[in-house]
Design a protein around this nucleic acid. Sequence first.
DNA 1: TATAATTTTCAAAAATTTCTGAAAATAAAG
DNA 2: CTTTATTTTCAGAAATTTTTGAAAATTATA
Lengths: 180, 180
Amino acid sequence: MKLDNQTEMFVMHFGEMGSRWGFSRTIGQMLALIVITPESLNADDISETLKISRGNVSMALKELQSWRLVKLVHKAGDRKDYFVAAGSIWDLAKTVFEERSKREVDPTLSMLRGALLETPEDEAAQYSQQKMQEIHDLLELLTQWAHTLNDMTPEKLQTLMKLGSGVVKLLDMKNKITGK
Amino acid sequence: MKLDNQTEMFVMHFGEMGSRWGFSRTIGQMLALIVITPESLNADDISETLKISRGNVSMALKELQSWRLVKLVHKAGDRKDYFVAAGSIWDLAKTVFEERSKREVDPTLSMLRGALLETPEDEAAQYSQQKMQEIHDLLELLTQWAHTLNDMTPEKLQTLMKLGSGVVKLLDMKNKITGK
DNA sequence: TATAATTTTCAAAAATTTCTGAAAATAAAG
DNA sequence: CTTTATTTTCAGAAATTTTTGAAAATTATA
């Protein structure tokens, strides 16, 4: 499969960026390719188009499935596995956000909970624990908030975001009414 | 400087996590150490405590300063450079968020803008461009939103997040009044 | 200006991550 | 059951990132 210039640039760019977003170059490129291709792709298509070894493609597809970013589909009369994006761009973005939170924030939260159960030995340990408490509270708040956002429809989310700084005014309004 | 068990665990954990957050293990450990230490630290303190070479500490401090996460302070009658966290936990979190957005989202946005100026050659290129448009719009919305959040005080932010799913009701309320 | 203290730089080494490709495993078809 | 198609695995190779440590540069003091 031949990609046009702009598309190739896009795919390569997502490869570079992929590594910053928690997955390898290959995985980034593959996700980009699957997203911008109208038809479903099989492992050989991907391997040829991106010039990546068959084994690597197989591993990367497993990874992308574990991230819930692509899904496996079948074609009648074809034994090969085909892959498509697991939803709209919004869905994918939400999924990445959710998965990263699960992989990056949750382990930290449990580490912090453990540390906060101990009794501090001295002055320094106490200060340290206080900071850990602050980080814990912040992460917990962020996690809750992420769940809230994840339960919202893309439309609601979009409305909220487009509100921009208006949200502050809305908060003030709400406080005037309920907070009294 | 000797760290107590819990603190050491915390510092090491942030080392592991650091790599997922866009900086190296060393940088993660150093930031954690600086944050949980009540006093300011100099490069030798850090090098000794974390058993990291002096050169590495120097480079990592540069990096942390470029991320605006630590700041340089001086002590009277002492020629050494000392470092402290560049603000509260909330401040640091906001800064990481902001910097990452600048480093990861902005380059993608400009790449996408470039690609969207081209006229698509064929059916496939057109589909591809449509997806790029969707990604562009999403990223732009996220960027704007990030700016909004960044302009809010921690208190307002906290209020907003604690509102949780209540924010949906608030949006509905607002729509009823203004949207008519 | 010379000396001493401190920080920075960077080539090479070490560690880690990613990738390849051939062999093994699995699954479908004949 | 055998053959063929397809996917997966994984040891070693390649690429990339991180770290060290000694030399160079910088800055302050005498």
